[in-house]
Computed example of a mutant assay.
Amino acid sequence: MDSFDTRIIGALRRDARISLSNLALEVGLSRVTVRARLNRLRESGVIVGYTVVLAEDMQHHPVRGLMMLGIEGRGADKITRLLSNVPAVQAVHSTNGKWDLIVELGTQTLYDLDGVLTRIRKFDGVTTSETNLLLATQMATRVPERLVSVD
């Protein structure tokens, strides 16, 4: 990927419905070149699909949070398997630094979130945790994975 590919992807993130002509104008390339680059980005797996995001999709889980987990020893794989059975878990990320895993959570209410946090904290191997509520999304550059469709 070069700077033109990065600009194409940036423009598509802002407006995935942009016409090929307008996309070409925005990034300063010909339509033919932009089409070829888009095909290459799809074929190489950089772009995996396009989707529509509805307002209700973004409101499906009005209470969202990030839970950072400290895990005893090398138990991250076991904890990740346990987390896969928790419906409120939207994503699990490995990380470096103080925390071993960062868990994205989404629930309908704070009461529900509290129950999920309590459940996760009781997992054998979780030694410490910290949770931050997500208050408002100022900007989103990606669609949650559950909404991505591959053509």
Rank of each mutant, 00 (worst) to 15 (best):
P62V: 02
L105W: 00
L105A: 02
S94D: 10
G97R: 08
D100V: 03
L101T: 02
T109H: 06
G65R: 00
R74N: 15
W99V: 03
I79H: 01
W99S: 07
Q90K: 15
L110P: 05
T107H: 03
A88I: 04
T80H: 04
G75Y: 03
A76L: 14
V103N: 01
A88W: 00
I102Q: 05
T80V: 07
V89F: 03
S94P: 09
P87N: 11
D100H: 06
L69A: 04
L110E: 15
R64F: 02
A76F: 09
V86S: 03
G97A: 06
A91S: 14
V103H: 00
R64I: 02
I102L: 13
Q90A: 12
R64Q: 13
E104A: 11
I102P: 02
L101F: 03
S94V: 13
Q108G: 13
V103R: 00
R74V: 09
L66N: 07
G70Y: 05
V63Y: 00
L69M: 11
R74C: 11
P87M: 05
T95K: 09
T109V: 05
G75R: 07
Q90L: 14
I102C: 06
R81Q: 13
N85M: 09
L83Y: 07
P87Y: 07
G106Q: 02
L69S: 03
M67T: 03
N85W: 11
D77N: 13
D100E: 10
E104P: 03
G97Q: 07
R74T: 15
A76G: 10
G97F: 05
I79P: 00
G97P: 04
G106S: 06
D100F: 01
D77G: 10
L101R: 01
M68F: 15
E72D: 14
L105S: 01
N96M: 15
E104I: 07
K78L: 10
L105V: 08
V63A: 01
G106L: 02
N85K: 12
A91C: 07
V89C: 04
Q90D: 08
D77L: 11
D100N: 12
D100W: 00
V92W: 02
M68D: 06
G73L: 09
S84H: 12
M67R: 01
N85H: 15
M67E: 04
L101E: 01
A91I: 05
I71E: 00
P62M: 05
G65I: 02
G75A: 08
E72L: 11
M68Y: 12
M68T: 06
T80Y: 05
I102F: 02
L110G: 11
G73I: 10
R81G: 07
G97D: 11
